[in-house]
Design a protein around this nucleic acid. Structure first.
Length: 268
RNA sequence: CUUAUCGAGCAUUC
């Protein structure tokens, strides 16, 4: 069973979902990790409904979902904004006493906040006796996504006071909030802190910076950030194109787009 | 053997 589980995970990793599924179907015996591999694999490829039905199926067959199952299932619920299903899973989590587990707790909170229930998500995180960077990021990103930008900045300072080191995900959330608020000073400060921590040339961070500077009226700084990139991707380029567009610089926007079309990663 | 958090723009009701 164990070697089949490893193979199933391997096929998911290389994106061969059909072979993974066939292997699973042909297994005479399965264990929880087998089901977890299928649930996780499906949900990672955004086949969230599939993942949830596999979860129901395993549950009906008497397999007890563990922390691995629950983390993935909650991610699937988040992807579907399935608040009702998510609450049911929450009930199960409580029954198993896993609500203070770092991974399960963050997944729960993420499910709530992604489904628009910031309060419930925040409650879950705040009730956790131990937090890690992901738990902090989950809260920060959740507030950012729900447009609670002031709260994002507050949580960011709380996180640092608690002695955690922000990472690229933290910065992306915080910088995007500065962008929403069009609060240049804060944005510049976050830029400086990102550089200090060595996150200043990560693509996702630069994309947020480009957008933030653009919305704050500093197209020059957007261009400067764009020129400091050490990697490329579609979102990065789209950010710069949008920034030009926002400032009425149509010619530059089109020029960038044409350059982008010559590369192998395609426009979306 | 398997689990959680991030970025651009566009689009959706009236």
């Amino acid at each position: 069973i164990m070697s089949c589980n490893i193979l199933i995970n391997g096929y998911f990793q290389i994106g061969d979902l059909d072979t993974a599924r066939n292997l699973f179907d042909e297994m005479p015996d399965r264990n929880v990790a087998t089901w977890n591999a299928m649930v996780t694999g499906s949900i990672q490829f955004e086949y969230n409904e599939e993942g949830l039905s596999l979860f129901r199926e395993m549950h009906e067959l008497g397999f007890l979902p563990d922390e691995f199952t629950l983390g993935s299932v909650l991610r699937g619920c988040a992807g579907l904004r399935a608040l009702y299903a998510g609450r049911q899973v929450h009930g199960y989590v409580t029954k198993c006493g896993l609500e203070f587990n770092l991974v399960v707790g963050s997944s729960l909170a993420h499910m709530y906040m992604k489904s628009g229930s910031l309060e419930e998500g925040e409650e879950v995180i705040k009730s956790m006796p131990i937090r890690n960077v992901v738990a902090w990021n989950t809260l920060i990103a959740g507030k950012a996504q729900n447009g609670y930008s002031e709260g994002v900045l507050n949580q960011y300072t709380m996180m640092k006071i608690a002695g955690f080191r922000p990472d690229k995900i933290t910065f992306v959330s915080v910088i995007s909030s500065c962008s929403e608020l069009a609060t240049l000073g804060q944005g510049q400060q976050m830029h400086a802190e990102a550089i200090k921590i060595g996150a200043g040339s990560i693509v996702s961070v630069i994309s947020s910076l480009i957008s933030m500077y653009s919305r704050c009226g500093c197209l020059e700084d957007s261009m400067k950030a764009f020129s400091e990139r050490e990697d490329e991707d579609v979102v990065l380029w789209s950010s710069m194109i949008a920034a030009y567009g926002f400032h009425g610089r149509g010619a530059e926007a089109i020029e960038l787009f044409e350059q982008m079309e010559k590369t192998d990663w395609e426009a979306n």
